[in-house]
Design a protein around this nucleic acid. Structure first.
Length: 724
DNA sequence: GATCGTTCTATTTTT
DNA sequence: TAGAACGATC
């Protein structure tokens, strides 16, 4: 497309955003308003019309997928866009840290610890801490990093932590620095600190990046905001052009540290900000948008915008009240089957739910009815045991200071190196190299034999990467040139992990071996060198979504089953939002800010639909082995009934605020009453009160000695005894 | 270090 | 209910 062509397809607001120059720019882009088009066109425009050096443009997104799409589309418009930095926030951080590893105090060959690794490291850094609390602390540490809090920060109250957390955090951090590695939070936090502390680096960055763009800005966290501030030099009076794009109504990652305030306050932090609203929606019909609007307008503290559909009236959304889950699955499968008979492809459909567990019911029905489907986001390839084992080897070869990787592989398969031996080695080699620890420490005969094998294997594998094929004299046949996949295969074979997992496959009928082959395949694009290995690891660590390819492409026409969170950025012709029940969506414990976030999640779900939208709500649902009566989601009440076609009997609404005195349930199950329970026997009601949801909760002291709490409203196994 | 039984606990998760 | 995770035992 020629520059004038790609400008001519824009609407006035889009064009205004694209050609804007000068101060900063905040683009409030409603769902389906052509946001990506605007960003990519803007990149192309700056290069071709404003003659900006593509090298000086940095555009960051949150997902690899979004980054790839952005890059591809920008290159189509302007080939020179290929030289711009278009990447995820975290991959930019990794790139930055590889360049300034000295300043950041990390190893040149660092790898990235994931959440599991963090938990392991916490448990090693604080040996007295019980396992359960390790994951709690690890989670808090990553949250702390999202909020840009370091161990010496004075106040952890904003992440709900007390004094003792600072020590735990400090212990973890010390241990992490000894490995030379980083965690995800560091990919943002460390670049921020480097920029803050080094005028030299700062100058280098400021003179390079003249334009910085951030996509999905509503989901940026505090650390990312501060990093953006440093990168742009806005505080130092550097005139970097900053353009952020986002939609405050679609902020759904508060629980991970995302801060809506970033977008709400942008205009205060970046001077001379121009605000452009993109309010023309090219995705959904107006009846769908009417639902979306009537929901989201119940939220306070929005910048506010009204979407106008460019696609006409369309079909009225349908709300179906169903008796139970089975009916819900049946209803969905029939909708899809009937449409399929009329020629609607399966891939037009998406089934949305709040929690992953809800996919199960749909899966079994779809399996039985032979409706092809794909579940998005479950069992990630890189989280599988066998894959993690090999990755641990790869990370360890890259960086032998990595104690977590070391512990994972040193005794798998068993080589007689038990916990005590491992402890000794790590203690000895910490901060240097686990291999030094292996060589220097004295162990039992069995253990030292195992260690010897491990060390020589590490050395051998390491040397595979150091071979320089070009330096070899004589023949330079290209077919002989090794790729990293040879290295990965060698790791599986020589470590004994291949045999180990093959026997597991035979026992459990799993796919571990083919997963390992898949992993080796994925490495084939990289050279068999240290640099190639690091590249590969970065690619993997920073893109955990990559699925087993073979699973994906045997059939393209499939129904999508997906959590509401995972739908961000996607669109489907026909969308069914399931489980619209109080306690399921929104979840039970949500109130205030969190309830607003749930509402935004609902808004995101609705605005995924292009042509048809359905809601399903069940009167009963099996949860935790019990069948519970359900009330319709309060969100449904926010949509005027004239905006939907209702199927089935409307059940009574949920009524919060009944106090215990007025509640007939509470009168019946009064304190002091005798009860009998199928499993626990006779007991007396010791106390009764309303919980936050306005449900009456009793606690019962049983003759057998135990105390249990119940919701009598739902209780089937508990009966009142006559007191006579 | 493998296996079996008991106990506990149930979100969302771009990187 | 189901699955993971832990602890006791061989």
């Amino acid at each position: 497309m020629s520059p004038d062509e790609y400008l001519s397809v824009l609407n006035p607001q889009q064009e205004e955003a694209v050609v804007h120059e000068g101060g900063s720019l905040l683009i409030l882009a409603g769902a389906g308003s052509g946001k990506t088009r605007v960003i990519t066109t803007k990149i192309a425009y700056m290069i071709s019309h404003l003659h900006l050096d593509p090298y000086s443009i940095l555009a960051v997104t949150f997902t690899k997928k979004a980054a790839n799409e952005m890059k591809e589309r920008a290159v189509l418009l302007e080939p020179k866009s290929a030289y711009a930095q278009i990447r995820t926030f975290h991959s930019f951080g990794a790139y930055f840290l590889r360049k300034y590893y000295m300043e950041a105090g990390v190893d040149k060959n660092f790898t990235v610890y994931d959440d599991d690794d963090m938990v392991n490291l916490v448990s090693k850094a604080i040996p007295t801490l019980p396992k359960k609390e390790c994951s709690f602390v690890a989670h808090k540490i990553s949250l702390a990093k999202d909020y840009c809090l370091t161990p010496d920060s004075s106040d952890f109250s904003q992440i709900g932590c007390t004094e003792e957390f600072a020590d735990q955090y400090a212990a973890y951090e010390k241990r992490l620095r000894e490995t030379g590695n980083v965690d995800f939070g560091d990919l943002i936090l460390l670049p921020y600190l480097v920029l803050k502390n080094s005028a030299l680096v700062k100058n280098e960055i400021h003179s390079r990046y003249r334009v910085i763009m951030v996509d999905e800005y509503q989901d940026s966290n505090v650390a990312q905001f501060l990093l953006l501030q440093q990168l742009s030099g806005v505080e130092d009076g550097v005139e970097t052009y900053v353009c952020v794009v986002g939609d405050d109504d679609q902020s759904i990652y508060k629980f991970r540290g995302a801060e809506v305030k970033n977008i709400l306050n942008f205009q205060n932090c970046f001077p001379d900000t121009k605000l452009v609203r993109l309010e023309t929606n090219y995705r959904s019909s107006s009846q769908i948008l009417a639902c979306a609007d009537s929901v989201v307008k119940n939220n306070a503290g929005r910048l506010g915008k009204t979407l106008v559909s460019a696609r006409g009236n369309g079909k009225k959304p349908v709300l179906a009240f169903l008796e139970n889950q089975d009916e819900e699955c049946e209803f969905c499968s029939q909708l899809i089957e009937n449409a399929h008979k009329k020629g609607v492809p399966y891939s037009d459909w998406a089934i949305l739910y709040r929690t992953n567990a809800q996919s199960m019911g749909f899966e079994s029905v779809f399996l039985r009815k032979k409706i092809p489907y794909t579940v998005v986001g479950t069992l990630k390839f890189y989280e599988r045991e066998e894959v993690k084992d090999i990755l641990a080897w790869l990370s360890f070869v890259a960086n032998p200071k990595d104690e977590i990787a070391f512990r994972r592989i040193v005794n798998k398969p068993a080589r007689g190196i038990g916990n005590t031996s491992q402890e000794k080695i790590v203690e000895c080699g910490r901060g240097r190299s686990m291999l030094d620890g292996c060589r220097e420490i004295k162990l039992s005969k069995k253990a030292s034999e195992g260690v010897q094998f491990f060390v020589s294997l590490s050395v051998e594998l390491d040397s595979m990467l150091n071979e320089n094929p070009d330096a070899e004299s004589g023949k330079k046949s290209k077919s002989k040139k090794k790729s990293l996949s040879d290295f990965v295969s060698a790791v599986s074979a020589k470590s004994g992990l291949e045999d180990y997992h093959r026997s597991q496959d035979e026992i459990a009928g799993t796919q571990k071996i083919s997963n390992l082959q898949e992993l080796a395949n994925a490495a084939s694009l990289y050279p068999c060198t240290k640099a190639g290995l690091l590249d590969f690891l970065d690619h993997i660590e920073l893109d955990r979504t990559l699925e087993n390819e073979s699973e994906q492409d045997d059939s393209k026409d499939r129904v999508t089953m997906i959590t509401l969170h995972n739908t961000k950025g996607l669109e489907f012709s026909r969308v069914i939002i399931t489980g619209m029940e109080h306690g399921v969506f929104p979840r039970e414990d949500k109130a205030g800010d969190e309830l607003e976030e749930e509402r935004r999640l609902f808004y995101v779900g609705i605005t995924r639909a292009k042509d048809e939208l359905y809601f399903t709500s069940c009167g009963m649902r099996r949860m935790y082995g019990q069948t519970k009566f359900m009330y319709p989601s309060p969100f449904l009440n926010e949509i005027d009934s004239s905006l939907m076609k209702v199927i089935g009997d409307t059940p009574p609404s949920y009524e919060p605020g009944l106090s215990a005195g007025e509640d007939p349930v509470a009168k019946k199950w009064h304190v002091g009453a005798q009860v009998y329970h199928d499993d626990y026997g006779y007991g007396v009601i010791a106390s009764g009160k309303m919980n936050d949801e306005g449900e009456y909760v009793i606690s019962v002291n049983f003759e057998t000695g135990g105390t249990k709490r119940f919701l009598p409203k739902y209780q089937k196994s508990l009966v009142l005894e006559d007191c006579e």
